[in-house]
């Protein structure tokens, strides 16, 4: 280690420290969780509501059959009730992962979680 220190000229130390400081300053970005995550509610594919996942909310969405109730809690969202016959989207329960989606097809309503781009289904590089 000592032998490698002799390659460090004064300017090298300055560059190293400046870039280390810049890196440290960037660190909070990593833990802020990227872009704001939100619950996106669609009716016939058209966005009718975008709810931030930071505070609790409850909205009613009129659909083809009746009213779907979307419930949001900090960090997660679900379809609380839906008039559809088979209740698939309700039984899916809470969604918390980015790009997760619950589709109430009979009622033409869907709920999806929009979030970080870093959540991939698959990745090839």
């Amino acid at each position: 280690m000592e032998s490698f220190l002799r390659f460090m000229k004064p300017g090298d130390w300055a560059v190293l420290l400046a870039l280390a400081a810049a890196t440290a300053a960037l660190a909070p970005v990593a833990f802020r969780g990227g872009a704001a995550e939100k619950a996106v509610v669609r009716r016939d594919g058209i966005i009718v509501a975008e709810l931030p996942l930071t505070r609790a909310a409850r909205i009613e969405v009129p659909g083809a059959l009746g009213v779907s109730v979307i419930e949001v809690q900090p960090g997660r969202a679900r379809v609380a009730s839906d008039p559809g016959p088979r209740q698939y989207c309700v039984r899916q329960g809470w969604l918390s992962q980015p790009n997760a989606v619950a589709i109430c097809a009979p009622n033409h309503v869907s709920l999806s979680i929009a979030g970080r781009a870093s959540s991939h289904d698959s990745l090839s590089y």
């Binding site: 890196t23 970005v29 969780g33 990227g34 781009a117 870093s118």
Partner: peptide, 12 residues
Amino acid sequence: HDGLIAIVPFFA
């Protein structure tokens, strides 16, 4: 997508 910013500190 701006979410890419979240990995910048690791790259840095």
